[in-house]
């Protein structure tokens, strides 16, 4: 987990000391908080808002080979759903471990039906997966 904003690392420290340390049980933030002064990295990732001078809420899942597998972009006033990030991460890990033999359908969470794509599954998803599984 790496977080990043255009704030300096000094401001990151102030935020941890003054506020975040009071919000998390670990008393500190358990991952590096990166500084993207000028939005150099945000520009490469397409999340830098030049008018506002900030990186908007972009979240990228990068696999162990350094390949981008997913991203999400949200305008600043709305916060993200952290369980959805964890769900996607678990689903991508399952798919990667399956080396192309497994797929995580809509609404998949650990314990729910995993699909095994192939000629036999075409037209037969309804036999192994029901729409209610798309919802919690």
């Amino acid at each position: 987990m790496l977080s990043m904003s255009v704030d300096s690392m000094f401001v990151h420290k102030m935020w941890v000391d003054k506020e975040l340390s009071k919000m998390v049980t670990a008393k500190t933030v358990p991952f590096p908080m990166l500084s993207d002064g000028g939005g150099t990295i945000g520009k490469m990732y397409g999340v830098y808002d030049q008018d506002e001078g900030v990186d908007i809420r972009g979240r990228f899942l990068i696999d162990p080979d350094g390949i981008v597998q997913a991203y999400e972009m949200v305008a600043p006033p709305v916060g993200r759903n952290i369980p959805e990030t964890l769900r996607q991460l678990q689903a991508f890990q399952l798919v990667r471990e399956g080396k192309g033999t497994k797929a995580a359908p809509s609404g998949w969470r650990p314990g729910k039906t995993v699909l095994e794509p192939g000629p036999d599954l075409v037209g037969n998803v309804w036999k192994v997966w029901t729409v209610d599984q798309a919802f919690d």
């Binding site: 704030d7 908007i56 809420r57 990228f60 990068i62 162990p64 350094g66 990030t85 991508f92």
Partner: peptide, 20 residues
């Protein structure tokens, strides 16, 4: 690239003292 071999969640946000 020091994190190759592991999954990475890279999370941008507009500014400190805001939510994520």
């Amino acid at each position: 690239s020091d994190h190759l071999g592991k999954w990475v969640v890279l999370c941008f946000y507009p500014g400190d003292f805001t939510f994520v």
